[in-house]
Design a protein around this nucleic acid. Sequence first.
DNA 1: CTGAAAGCGCTTACAG
DNA 2: CTGAAAGCGCTTACAG
Lengths: 333, 333
Amino acid sequence: MKKVSLQVIAQKAEVSMTTASMVLNGKGDKHKINKTTQDKVLRIAKELNYRPNASARNLSRGKTMTIGIIVPNIADSYYSSIAFHLEQELAHSEYHLLLGSSLEDQAKEEELINAFLARQVDALLVATTQQNLELLEKVNNSGIPVVLFDRHHPNSQLPYIIVDNYAGIKKLVDHLYQSGHKAIGYIGLDLDLHAIHERQRAYRENYMDRFNMQTNYMRAIEYDNYAESCQQAVSELLTLGVKAIIFETHYLTLHGIKQLVELGVNYPDTVSIASFGDHEVFSIFSPHITAIDQPVDRIAKECLKVIFERMTNRENETTSKIKLEPELIIRNS
Amino acid sequence: MKKVSLQVIAQKAEVSMTTASMVLNGKGDKHKINKTTQDKVLRIAKELNYRPNASARNLSRGKTMTIGIIVPNIADSYYSSIAFHLEQELAHSEYHLLLGSSLEDQAKEEELINAFLARQVDALLVATTQQNLELLEKVNNSGIPVVLFDRHHPNSQLPYIIVDNYAGIKKLVDHLYQSGHKAIGYIGLDLDLHAIHERQRAYRENYMDRFNMQTNYMRAIEYDNYAESCQQAVSELLTLGVKAIIFETHYLTLHGIKQLVELGVNYPDTVSIASFGDHEVFSIFSPHITAIDQPVDRIAKECLKVIFERMTNRENETTSKIKLEPELIIRNS
DNA sequence: CTGAAAGCGCTTACAG
DNA sequence: CTGAAAGCGCTTACAG
């Protein structure tokens, strides 16, 4: 498995590198190259197991056929399944994904953006911390398509694909209320993200304000040690006599359940629970957990659609802003 | 954000590209370049927000600072957390991960290997389908370090990091037996993987053979529709009067539980369950699930260690074969 | 201490 | 129909 270069192919086929290159790039017909010549080049390339050196190709084409994707945490099932769907969509293209986790950290995200740019990614997909929006806009304006997904900021002009966070929580609140619950708690994160603000606003407006609640059943906990904080918040709300709890993310739901189990509190008998964000296991363990489903496959598809549109029609500056309607899946929690 | 190249930096700093390049690569001192000159170059590069073009650098260095990782499915929590740990370990290096899912498919895996090679990855990490071992060995011998993880084949000379599959299942069998179970079922996959064979052999030798079991409580189901098949297998085993079930992977366990829940079969009262492969939720929902834990962080660390050793000491041809001892976590299932 | 120049392996206008 | 040659943006032996 010696490195076989275009030059080698050209020599063996007794043609110029130009010809070899054209044939191998499928431009043989376009350049009206002899069928026989084409076949010969192709055959030799195959025999020698020729793999064009992508670095060289990238350099001269100015394209790398790679898309950078930055998420808070690739170990999070939500993000990993988006990555999976992206990958599947790209499977029969020449594109590949370069992966990075920001851990919700501004500096780390910035590093990743810069590193990916240095690597000349053709596009950037980011579930952003929202703290590098300026940089991302510069990048986007400089010609490298940037698409935000999962999180965006209303003041930013960047294209995005998100789920309607407000609507999602509203559905949860309405569902619980209609099920007869008056004391509905909410456990969320204190992250400064628009998505989070929207979810919390939905809870406030559709529950607290609407029913003029006096007691504050809402908790916004620290992201850094959300596991324990979440469990503690559950206990607090329980003490306050809450009869239902909405969790802002699937992993908060998981930790909330953990606490209920540890406390021996029965759900939904003693307290109902509902999750923004579905999880594979919510329809496995008993009782099944009511949740807002975020359509990962659609998110992935739309992201790529926007990217490829922007990569082809440079003129088409229609900033695509897509807000998907999340679905309420009523189960028995 | 115009593209600023080395040339631009060199001009502004009034030095040659050679000098600029050396300084920016931290080789200024080595080449005894004037402190003042160095500062000037560095300052200008910073001002202009210089990002060296990685394609060009790759081409001339013959290195890409990227590691290809191929897993069966990045949406699988086990693989995504390995990817996460790899990424964290690499966070302060210049390395990044190029990601691919093979879906247990030989052709797809081969495509990924070839595509990654064309992209000149510096190393390849693969949880292989075991069907491209020859190719992988060629790659490895050609100087690009290949490390298998999670799966390997005894006949292959490739370095690997795996967990002791045999020991893992043995621990599960022994644990269940010591807990008083005589009728222990086993639900696994019919994939032709050494890891799988080892697990099944452990069950056969340490349970079936050892206790001379007449009835076959073992099921090896199709990977392609494992969800339904697994649920069906659970029902079958239950009918046979099995009092405990060992699941070969964490996702089989999940689907097994789903079936028990649907059937209204109580665990561990009616049937005990144990999982090869831990999962975040096993210690959340009640009852907690007894499982064999595969140390993802150690796997990630060892993979990189082997890779970097091989990348630095080309002579050191010690094929590293590491088998990690998996831990039995006894919970109440 | 610093620079001119070759080279990495492709692609692609240009010429014939 | 096909080729010679410039160029992509770096790195690095070599020379001084």
